[in-house]
Nucleic acid binder design. Structure first.
Lengths: 254, 254
DNA sequence: GAGTGGTCTAGACCACGTC
DNA sequence: ACGTGGTCTAGACCACTCA
């Protein structure tokens, strides 16, 4: 009939957080304090805290306590051009420029590997499952903190022997190299889905298993409709705002 | 040093689910069976099950058991035109046509209200917070199951006295009515973010608190850049795949 | 009514962070 | 050394579903 004990406790704490009585970054009373204050068992206290943690309001650290979470979402305008002509030490793609435009510092770590395409990759690149692809794995950081992983896949025959297949910055830029070979992209087909983090991803991105992740797939196509590159971005959902701007009349419509 | 007990149990169950040993829609052993099989306490069993539930793999029903979840994501191509010219009994917007195109049946329930704009709405419509807006709240169903809520906001002075401010279908369509008054839209600015469900939303959308939700904001603008309508869609993250298709050259670039 | 999951208690030991 | 959260046990009662 009535709400569970832990739900009431959670509601009380939630109210204190949203009203500002507990500031972002601030610390909540310890579990034993909450237990004593409310006259409930520790398990009940933890149920309330974990409910709020799943809602993204608080976060815990073993041996440290429970803290009100601070979120600073990042805006990424995905519909902007991606034909960056120069790549220097600092990342210079559309994403990096969006980050800098918001007064923050983007860095990244790149690994390059040659692998067999799994089904999700192969079907988007119009290849057979198991075909060889070159993947450039990017770990993107903002102000030194991990923010997203972005893997870009290229069919191996296209990029064989080019700087794209090497684990260095690509000069004068990936688009320039691809365009020179007749694979410049002009169109994109994007898919966005949100789902809970697995344990691996949670470790990699610094969140909890089950926290919402945003998954963004971008297939880059030539004017002829040939898929020449596939970018797969995974980021904690509340840390990334994806933006699109467009006109209806240019889409052809019906 | 070693992984927690519940993590090991979860990994074992996860493997049985992904390998197909436990079919989608099928039932898992009961908590007491798992307890006996693995020689652990019920709490540990429940920790494992709840971890998998947060990952979206299983779902429980009080008095019924734990079941492997079946997910059937829906594709929604958000970049398609939205100038539907006729609205009959059945919903006929871009979303509804995407649903039908995937062989499923879209229905909806509409409520219309006149309210004061909260900050998130006001800033996108370029109004003062608290300005009067007309909101058409849509509950979208697929094959009879709740799928998403979609609220569309209009500045009240624009739609006053028109069918848009009435809780019925709008004939010959919302775009036609707006265009006739000189407020036809040609551009959109979209924002997509994913976050955990609050308790209210969880009830409304038939998910658990903390489950990932995808939130989609679409501001519709006239050719002059005037914001004339705002659509706010909220859907369980794994039930909705948002798609965009576009060209880079038509965006102007930088 | 029997079995299921949902909630709650009391108590314990461990790993981690801080001092 | 101490306090924190993380894990685990044993046991209880309740609400719900289904036969």
């Amino acid at each position: 009939m009535s709400a569970p004990l832990y739900a009431g406790l959670a509601a009380e704490l939630r109210q204190k957080i949203t009203s500002g009585a507990h500031q972002p970054g601030g610390r909540l009373p310890s579990e034993s304090e909450l237990q004593a204050e409310h006259g409930v068992s520790r398990h009940t206290v933890r149920q309330a805290l974990m409910l709020l943690a799943r809602e993204g309001l608080i976060i815990s650290g073993q041996g440290r306590g429970w803290y009100v979470r601070e979120v600073r979402p990042l805006n990424w305008t995905a519909s902007r051009t991606e034909r960056n002509l120069s790549t220097d030490q600092v990342p210079n793609d559309a994403w990096a420029r969006d980050v800098r435009g918001q007064g923050r510092r983007p860095t990244e770590r790149i690994e390059v590997a040659m692998i067999r395409a799994e089904a999700r990759v192969a079907e988007r690149l119009d290849l057979a499952t198991g075909a060889t692809v070159v993947v450039r794995r990017r770990y993107r950081y903002i102000d030194g903190e991990i923010y997203a992983t972005a893997d870009t896949y290229y069919p191996e025959p296209i990029v064989r022997g080019t700087p794209i297949a090497e684990p260095d910055d690509v000069l004068p830029g990936v688009y320039a190299v691809m365009a020179k070979m007749g694979y410049g992209w002009e169109r994109y087909a994007d898919e966005i889905v949100s789902r809970p983090a697995s344990r691996d991803e949670a470790d990699r991105l610094g969140v909890y298993p089950g926290d919402p992740l945003t998954e963004h797939w971008r297939t880059r196509l030539t004017a002829r409709g040939e898929a020449v590159a596939l970018m797969h971005t995974v980021a904690p959902g509340d840390r990334l705002v994806i933006r699109y701007e467009g006109r209806w009349d240019t889409d052809g419509g019906e």
